[in-house]
Computed example of a mutant assay.
Amino acid sequence: MNIPLLAGTVSTVLFAASMLPMLLKAVRTKDLESYSVGNIATTNVANAVHSFYVFDLPAGPVWLLHSFYIVASALMLLWCLRYRKVPDDALNEPIGEPVTEGTEQ
């Protein structure tokens, strides 16, 4: 029995399972206001860079776990950008400086 492989497999399943409630709630409610777009974007960049290391390792549970993280963080970024709410007052603000006719400076 290969204990390290078994431990890697079990931990991969547990880590993935721990993220599923967050993903399911995000897709179900589309309420992602508590998530930082900057943080999730940084996570996606880190996952892309870390992929050079992970996918250079022999295939195993770490490939599955990292692949899951890539998909999960990409989905969260997509959903954050797609479902973020624009404040009501931002919709009513004029763009640029108001022009007042009849006054010279």
Rank of each mutant, 00 (worst) to 15 (best):
N2K: 01
N2L: 05
N2T: 11
I3A: 11
P4L: 07
P4T: 09
P4F: 06
P4H: 02
P4K: 07
P4A: 04
L5R: 11
L5V: 10
L5W: 07
L5N: 13
L6G: 02
G8C: 04
G8A: 13
T9V: 03
V10G: 06
V10T: 09
V10C: 08
V13K: 02
L14M: 15
F15W: 06
A16E: 08
A16G: 11
A16S: 15
A17L: 14
S18K: 09
S18G: 12
M19Q: 14
M19H: 10
L20E: 00
P21M: 00
P21N: 02
P21T: 02
M22H: 02
M22P: 04
L24T: 10
L24A: 11
K25V: 11
A26W: 06
V27G: 05
K30W: 00
K30D: 09
K30Q: 15
K30L: 00
K30P: 07
K30T: 08
D31F: 01
D31W: 01
L32C: 01
E33H: 14
E33G: 14
Y35W: 14
Y35K: 08
V37Q: 06
N39L: 15
A41G: 01
T42I: 08
T42D: 01
T43A: 15
N44L: 12
V45R: 05
V45L: 15
V45A: 15
V45F: 14
A46W: 03
N47V: 03
N47M: 10
A48G: 12
V49W: 10
V49D: 00
H50N: 12
S51E: 08
F52G: 10
D56I: 05
D56Y: 13
D56H: 13
L57C: 14
L57K: 14
P58G: 13
P58H: 08
A59V: 15
A59I: 14
G60W: 00
P61E: 04
V62R: 05
W63T: 06
W63Y: 13
L64C: 11
I70W: 06
I70R: 03
V71C: 07
A72I: 00
S73K: 03
S73P: 01
L75H: 06
L75N: 05
M76G: 04
L78T: 12
W79Q: 07
C80F: 10
R82Q: 03
R82W: 07
R82D: 00
R82E: 03
R82H: 12
R82T: 12
Y83K: 05
V86P: 02
D89G: 00
N92I: 04
E93D: 04
E93K: 01
E93M: 08
P94Y: 02
I95Y: 13
G96S: 11
G96M: 13
E97M: 11
E97F: 11
E97A: 11
P98S: 02
P98I: 12
P98W: 05
V99G: 06
V99Y: 12
G102K: 07
G102L: 10
T103C: 06
E104G: 12
Q105I: 06
Q105F: 12
